[in-house]
């Protein structure tokens, strides 16, 4: 259903753009293609890793580490992994969905997704260059704590 919505949004956007300016539309499509090619290697690696790990880890194992019963430790572990890794959302979401279908809890997955997006350990040097050490550490610590709060909230809403 949402996929149809996505195609509809993209189609309408393209249509309007095409009528307004053909060249800009061409440029947009070129950028889209280039961006896709840019993430392709990462995309394939994650695809392979997900296939291997989800075939080895059965539902019981995943839910032991990331399931609803894994509790605070599971949430903390998930958000730590999210903070450290650097994966674009469109690659992380399907992997997260697969984990969710295979026994992970919504709170744990939300912790992973939130800290993945808001906290960037790998990109700290880049951030420090622009904002200085204190502001960078402050932003990332706040974001880490907040991603835990967000996870609890999302887990609560999904469980309603």
């Amino acid at each position: 259903m949402e996929t149809i919505l996505l195609y509809l949004a993209a189609g309408i956007g393209l249509g309007i753009s095409f009528f307004k300016d053909i060249n800009k539309t061409k440029m947009a499509l070129k950028k889209a293609l280039k961006a896709f090619e840019g993430i392709l290697p990462q995309f394939l690696v994650v695809l392979i890793l997900v296939a291997i790990s989800l075939s080895v880890l059965d539902t019981a194992t995943i839910s032991r580490f990331l399931g609803t019963k894994s509790g605070v430790l599971g949430v903390l572990a998930a958000s730590l992994v999210g903070a450290i890794t650097l994966i674009p959302g469109f690659i992380a979401f399907p992997a997260a969905a697969a984990l969710l279908q295979n026994g992970a809890g919504a709170t744990q997955i939300a912790a992973f997704v939130s800290s993945l997006m808001m906290v960037g350990v790998v990109t700290l040097p880049m951030e420090i260059k622009h904002f200085g050490k204190r502001a960078t550490f402050m932003r990332n610590s706040f974001a880490f704590v907040f991603s835990l709060i967000a996870a609890l909230f999302v887990g609560w809403v999904v469980g309603l």
């Binding site: 949004a9 993209a10 956007g13 499509l29 889209a32 961006a35 695809l47 399907p94 992997a95």
Partner: peptide, 23 residues
């Protein structure tokens, strides 16, 4: 299964991102 899901959803997202970038 993963490849199918991703490849089905990714094209419109990138078209949208490209359009946003330009407009």
């Amino acid at each position: 299964y993963q490849a199918k899901t991703m490849l089905l959803v990714i094209p419109p997202i990138f078209v949208l991102l490209g359009l946003l970038d330009v407009w």
